[in-house]
């Protein structure tokens, strides 16, 4: 190994430090550019095969949240978001009840007790060509 002069050693040390700094700076830049913002809430939910929801289905889909119904008229869905302030309503024997402020809705989603003054929103449900059931919140 050749002798390293003092000048060369200092130069090598300086260049090494600068290179490390550069790498760290580059890492920070990549991290900055790679920042992922929170994704927007989904509006299209693939519920799987429609055949998995036979006639008579009455199922809560908690991720939406919504109530999926399959009756003689086909598929339909009710949002389980209270129209007052957005809490998730609970299904009861007499319809739906909001645990936050006590709003009540009948099984069709119509208001029976305030403070909500708008009916529960009906959501669009469609079956795609591949037989999948999609529920849309917008």
């Amino acid at each position: 190994m050749p002798d390293l002069s003092r000048r060369d050693f200092l130069k090598l040390a300086r260049d090494s430090l600068l290179a490390l700094s550069g790498l760290l700076g580059l890492g920070g830049l990549i991290r900055f550019l790679d920042f992922q913002t929170e994704p927007p809430a989904p509006t299209d939910f693939d519920l799987g095969l429609a055949s998995d929801y036979p006639l008579g289905t009455h199922k809560v889909i908690p991720d939406v949240p919504a109530l999926l119904i399959h009756d003689a008229s086909g598929f339909s869905a009710l949002s389980l978001v209270c129209t007052h302030l957005g809490c998730t309503v609970e299904e009861k024997a007499e319809g739906f009840s909001c645990p936050c402020h006590g709003s009540r809705f009948d099984p069709q989603g119509e208001v029976t007790r305030g403070p909500a003054n708008k009916p529960i929103i009906k959501l669009r449900v469609e079956t795609t060509e591949d037989g999948h059931l999609h529920l849309y919140t917008t």
Binding site: R7, L10, K11, A13, R14, L17, L18, L20, S21, L24, G25, G28
Partner: peptide
């Protein structure tokens, strides 16, 4: 001059390490 550059490089690296820490 070279010593100053070396010191500045060391300080820069130190500052970046502190930020990352």
């Amino acid at each position: 001059m070279r010593r100053s550059l070396l010191a500045a490089s060391a300080l820069l690296l130190l500052a970046l390490l502190v930020i990352f820490w």
